[in-house]
Design a protein around this nucleic acid. Structure first.
Length: 553
DNA sequence: GTTAGGG
DNA sequence: CCCTAAC
């Protein structure tokens, strides 16, 4: 199991170094321990690592440390904000320099954390998960920097004394003052339980067995779990009945789901990791119970619980369901739309919906890439890429374009214009196809005017072939419908036309006859000259006929 | 984000 | 003009 423990900064300092650090400027106060889990499996693995008896002391130390940070109240922050700032800027070298026997054990523990826990301890295989669905999960954020630094302010003297007492480089932060009344209630409840019962409760809370039979250890960890459960997700009521019954009677969510929830919420806060927005990979059906997925998604607040009873991915794929969130139970307001390409980027229209083309075809059930218009039947909201449209559909579209292409022709004089500025580009466009009523696929389909062609030629003369963005910026600033890609396409067509003209005058005459070719000879000659100076790509030249390529290159 | 190239 | 891959 590969963990992301590299980001776990176990930066502890010896008391002496800490004293030096405390004299730094306040802005140098930086964060201490933080852990990022990229998956639930990692959290589970680290949890099991923490449950090892040989690491009990270290776990206590870390948990005390982080629990204090989690439990910090605003009043404490205010109260101690005027105190001397304390730097908890630690580094691993400092730990190694102050080695003791206890430190060695700690180092071993930290090494295991950083290297990833033994695969055998991981109960869930995470290698062959299908990346079916990507859910943007925004988990609660804990400001580690603020909490830890303030906590350091609060407990400076106590911390130093405690760490010296333990004769280790780790600053042990005990925050007995910060215990809440609810903690005491829960503690009383746990104290009445037998060790076996505690083990059972532990299993119910965190979803895993623990080999630790120490009653105090179990109590403390479950208190922490409860406390952080409340902190991390107040909307989710922790099933108290799970404490009383191993059968989890009366619990609304299935046990399997509880396990997932508690690992992801309670331990997340225990480890005080500042969760960053991440992509959660939801496992396919073979690897996770459907009910568990429903529960997990519900807790994440991203997915409604109107899932189908069965998820037959093959069937859905067969139906060519690409992005229909409804079939996945995604609420429409929770469907996040990746922004379509901005600036000069192209926008792709399908049935009135904007679709980002990037990545649509990679996964069958990618969520969060579309924006469906509400109020339409499911079938109508199915977004299909143009590539999946039938040939008849595309042919019909081309037919519509051809009909309107004959209705308007631009610059019929065919004379060269001196205009090369950008102030008339919008006006002298000729609309080739305006069939928006029935065909909204194409962006505008406006023919290039001679003025535009001249500007393009001028731009290529100045910048050369390939700097389409610069040409766009300098010569087509106000031409909102001419993207750099359009310029590139047009230049390619101009190049072909110029070569074709030399190749066959008959073909040009035929096109003139049909009113298609309206590019003046002078322009094409200039294009040909520029093509010599700025050769187009080799691939393109090879596509032109051998005789033409000789001339063009 | 930009560009090349196939369609 | 659309779409994708590559950078």
């Amino acid at each position: 199991m590969q963990t992301s423990m590299d980001s776990f900064e176990y930066n502890w300092k010896t008391p002496n170094e800490s004293a030096k650090s405390s004299q730094r400027e306040p802005e140098q106060v930086v964060s201490a321990a933080s852990i990022y889990f990229s998956s639930e499996e990692e959290a589970i693995g680290v949890e099991q690592l923490f449950a090892e008896p040989e690491y009990g002391d270290i776990v206590d130390t870390l948990l005390d440390f982080n629990t204090c940070a989690c439990s910090l109240q605003e009043s404490y922050i205010k109260e101690f904000s005027a105190s001397e700032p304390v730097v908890i800027n630690n580094d691993r070298d400092a730990v190694q320099r102050g080695l003791s026997e206890e430190d060695k054990t700690r180092e071993k523990f930290l090494d295991e954390l950083s290297n990833g826990y033994n695969e055998n301890h991981c109960s869930i295989s995470c290698e062959d998960y299908l990346l079916d669905i990507e859910l943007e999960e925004e988990t609660p954020t804990l400001d580690v920097t603020r909490d830890v630094s303030c906590m350091g302010i609060m407990n400076l003297e106590k911390k130093l004394a405690d760490s010296e007492q333990r004769n280790c480089g780790v600053h042990v932060l005990k925050l007995s003052d910060a215990s809440t009344s609810s903690d005491h209630d829960a503690l009383d409840e746990f104290e009445d339980m037998s060790t076996d019962k505690l083990l059972e409760v532990f299993r119910n809370m965190f979803g895993h067995q623990t080999s630790v039979a120490d009653k105090q250890w179990l109590e403390s960890h479950m208190i922490i779990g409860l406390e952080n459960q409340e902190m991390s997700d107040k909307n989710y009521s922790f099933p108290k009945s799970s404490l009383d019954s191993s059968e989890n009677q009366g619990v609304k969510v299935p046990p399997a789901c509880q396990n997932l929830l508690k690992v992801s919420t309670a331990f997340a806060s225990i480890f005080n990791f500042r969760t960053k927005p991440r992509v959660q990979h939801v496992k396919r059906r073979e690897h996770i119970q459907w009910n568990s997925f429903k529960c997990l998604s519900s807790a994440a607040g991203e997915i409604q619980l109107d899932f189908p009873d069965k998820w037959d991915s093959k069937k859905l794929a067969k139906e060519n369901v690409k992005c229909d969130g409804t079939k996945l139970g995604i609420s429409e307001q929770n469907l996040k739309c990746k922004p379509s390409r901005g600036g000069f980027g192209r926008r792709y229209y399908h049935r009135g919906a904007k679709v980002s083309s990037q990545g649509l075809g990679k996964r069958n059930f990618q969520v969060g890439c579309i924006q469906n218009p509400p109020g339409l039947p499911i079938e109508e909201r199915l977004i299909r890429r143009e590539g999946h449209l039938s040939k008849d559909c595309r042919a019909n579209r081309a037919y519509n374009s051809n009909i309107h292409s004959a209705e308007a022709q631009d610059d019929p004089s065919g004379t060269l214009s001196d205009q090369s500025s950008d102030n008339s580009s919008e006006d002298d466009w000729t609309i080739g196809s305006e069939t928006r009523g029935t065909n909204q696929d194409r962006k505008h389909n406006k023919y290039w005017s001679t003025t535009e062609v001249l500007k393009l030629v001028e731009g290529v003369s100045k910048y050369g072939v390939g700097r389409w963005s610069d040409i766009k910026r300098m010569f087509f600033q106000s031409s909102v419908h001419r993207s750099p890609a359009d310029l590139k396409d047009k230049w390619r067509n101009l190049l072909r036309a110029s070569c074709r003209r030399l190749q066959s005058h008959r073909g040009v005459d035929a096109k003139k006859k049909h009113g298609v070719s309206r590019i003046p000879h002078e322009v094409l000659n200039r294009v040909r000259e520029l093509a010599v100076i700025y050769p187009y790509s080799r691939k393109h030249r090879t596509r032109i006929s051998p005789t033409a390529s000789l001339v063009c290159s």
